[in-house]
Amino acid sequence: MNELVIVPKEIDGVVIHEGIKFSECTFIEIYIDGISVEEIEAFESGAVYWAELERSLQGTGEYLLFTCFCGNPGDAGWDYVKVVATDDTVSWCFERDIESKYEFSKEDYIGQIISCRSMLNLDNYPLAISASVLP
């Protein structure tokens, strides 16, 4: 089973991702087994789409958990992630260059999303990725 951490990252000033400037905003950061998804090849060129991550609490289904920084998931090679929820676990299954599967404790998964939601300061730092084109 994989360990999951989800936290908001508030940006003071300006950052550039894939040629796009973002300022005074919040990105959602995900760590799996202590490693940022930005450093895991399977997640390359992905920005977390918070609305869909939060929606994945509804249970098994396909969710657009990651998108391109421009908001078009196809630009970064992203499509829906298959989320499978059981009584005890939540799994992510997707294929990009390689087939990937991650499995988390359901209790931790729910807890991380709720904790991240409580830390968001959207009045001062709106979400950087607040909309996405659905595939």
Rank of each mutant, 00 (worst) to 15 (best):
G77S: 09
K101A: 05
C93R: 10
G111C: 13
P73D: 00
G74E: 15
A47D: 01
F22G: 01
D87I: 07
G77C: 08
Y63K: 09
E99Q: 09
P135N: 06
P135S: 02
K9H: 12
D33V: 00
E24F: 01
A128K: 10
E99T: 06
Y80C: 05
S23I: 00
V7Q: 14
V81A: 00
Q112K: 15
V37E: 02
W92K: 01
D123T: 11
V15G: 00
N2C: 11
T67H: 04
D97Y: 12
I30Q: 00
E29C: 05
Y125A: 02
K21D: 13
R55Y: 12
D123K: 07
Y102G: 13
S45R: 12
E10Y: 02
Q112L: 08
I113L: 15
D123C: 08
D79W: 15
V37S: 00
S115I: 05
D12N: 13
H17T: 01
E54W: 01
P135Q: 07
K106G: 06
V37C: 00
V83I: 10
E3I: 04
Y125P: 03
G77E: 09
T26R: 01
D123I: 06
L65S: 10
V7I: 05
E29K: 10
L127Y: 06
N124Q: 13
S105A: 03
I40Y: 03
E39I: 02
F22Y: 12
S132L: 09
E62C: 11
F43Q: 01
I114C: 09
V83T: 03
C70W: 08
V81I: 14
Y63V: 08
V7N: 15
V5E: 08
S45Q: 10
L53F: 14
P135E: 05
E10V: 02
C70Y: 04
S105E: 12
S56M: 06
A51E: 13
E10H: 03
F43S: 02
A47I: 07
C93A: 04
E41L: 12
F27E: 01
L4R: 06
T89E: 11
I30T: 00
D33W: 01
M1A: 08
D123M: 03
L122M: 09
A47E: 05
A128M: 08
Y102P: 13
I20T: 04
K82H: 10
I20D: 00
D97K: 14
M1K: 15
T60I: 04
S100R: 07
R96Y: 07
D33K: 08
D75K: 10
G111H: 08
C68H: 10
K21Q: 14
C93V: 10
I113P: 10
M119K: 13
T67Q: 04
K82G: 09
L4C: 01
I6F: 03
I16Y: 00
E29V: 05
L122V: 03
V37D: 00
S45L: 13
G19N: 02
A85M: 12
C116Y: 02
K101Q: 15
I129A: 02
G34N: 02
K82F: 13
N121I: 04
E39F: 10
D87R: 15
G59W: 07
E41S: 12
S23G: 08
G46Q: 01
G111R: 14
W50A: 07
W92L: 14
V7T: 07
I35L: 09
S56R: 11
S45F: 12
